[in-house]
Simulated assay, not measured.
Amino acid sequence: MPSATPPDKLPDDDALLRRLRLLLRVVDCGGVGEAAREIGISQPAVSSQIKRLESDLGVSLFRRSGRRLTLSDQGAALVPVLRRGLGELSMTLNAVRDIARSRAAPLRFGFSAPQIALDAAEVFRKADPRTRLELRAANSTDLFAALDSYDLDIIMIGLPAPRAPYHCQLYQRQYMTVLVPVGHALAGHRAITLAELATEPIVLREPGSYTRALLIEAFEAAGLAPRIAFEVATREAVTEAVRRGFGLGPVLDREAPVSPDLACIPLDECRIVGDDYLACHASALHYGPVSRFLAANRHDELQARAAAAR
């Protein structure tokens, strides 16, 4: 059992960091054996390093019951702090490499709407061709989880308002529209009301989708209930389900596909607004690729470019 009092002298930084990262791997994998298999070393070696970490810190990180490990109260308190601290360290090291290697470090960019996010990625690539982009698509819930675990540097996400404690920069504003098969009775309408939409079967994204949350909130505010016929995981699946007659498909206007067999009709009476933000940790603003990505995609400059193009 480790001493209750932390030792005066900790091991060298590299050894301690390796053990701290190993602790997170054990937690994320769900056990010592699983972590050992993922890393490719023996289970006794992992167990030995965890015990040495407990000795280094002077705390018991796990409760041991036979071969079963569960985090102790101290371990459970340490893990989120450790995850945040190692993420900040990783961000700092990336910033140092960015300077030392002349912009060689990559930018990890996550998004839920590729049609929009790839526009931002293209703007950045033209402004900063030497920085490599790593792209990941996910829903809104998973994007914040990846940002919090420092698996992503910056994300594009729909939000009703900037979310603390993240740095959020407005990218664009969208409005809700409805995908309708061209043969449908509503396809010729200039606009569709929420009351009309409530009488039709609709195809929605899965829970966790920002578009879905906006629409459900609008229905509830109007005292209406949607007829959800089908739930799908992607925008492409919404389009295909509407095309095949499963229902109408509420989508944000910039995400609506251009298709000869589908009409895109605005919602009337209720202008459901969706704001897309670029979000990152405040500490990431010191990381060159993140600051350059934000600078290349400032909302006011994008608006000015669009106006000039018209």
Rank of each mutant, 00 (worst) to 15 (best):
A185N: 07
L267F: 02
A45Y: 12
P207N: 06
L248F: 06
S55V: 02
P289H: 06
L22R: 15
D275F: 01
I157K: 10
S259H: 15
A233Q: 14
L143H: 12
E34A: 15
D128P: 00
R108G: 06
D14V: 08
Y277P: 04
G183L: 04
G85H: 09
R19S: 11
V59I: 13
D153N: 14
Q174V: 03
P226Q: 02
A229H: 03
R132P: 04
V258P: 01
C264P: 12
E206S: 12
A121I: 01
E240P: 07
Y166L: 03
L135R: 06
T234V: 03
H299D: 06
L267C: 11
S65D: 13
E269F: 00
Q43F: 01
A222D: 11
A304G: 02
L252Y: 06
A77L: 13
L71M: 11
V32F: 05
A191E: 15
S3Q: 13
L147C: 11
V290R: 08
L17Y: 07
F62M: 08
A263V: 05
P250L: 00
E122G: 11
S72A: 11
Y175M: 02
M91A: 15
L152W: 07
A127V: 03
R173E: 07
A237F: 01
N297L: 01
E122S: 14
T239E: 12
R205I: 00
G158P: 02
V242I: 05
D142W: 00
P201N: 06
F293T: 09
F124M: 08
A127P: 12
D300E: 14
T239L: 01
R63G: 02
G58E: 05
D276P: 00
V203I: 08
D56N: 13
L170V: 10
A113N: 10
F246M: 08
S209Y: 06
E255D: 15
A306Y: 01
A222G: 10
Q174N: 14
P266E: 03
G110M: 05
R132Y: 00
E220D: 14
D268Y: 02
A77E: 15
A279T: 15
E134S: 10
G208E: 07
L302V: 01
R84A: 14
A195K: 14
T92H: 13
V27G: 06
I155P: 15
Y277M: 02
L69S: 12
A308G: 03
R37K: 15
L267Y: 04
A36E: 10
H299C: 05
L194W: 06
C270H: 13
F246I: 00
V251C: 07
R205P: 00
P260Q: 04
A76V: 06
P160K: 07
A304H: 10
L252S: 12
A309Y: 08
F109T: 03
V273H: 03
V258A: 10
A145K: 14
A241S: 15
A222Q: 13
P257R: 05
Y210K: 03
A104T: 10
T211Y: 00
D28W: 09
A304M: 05
A45L: 09
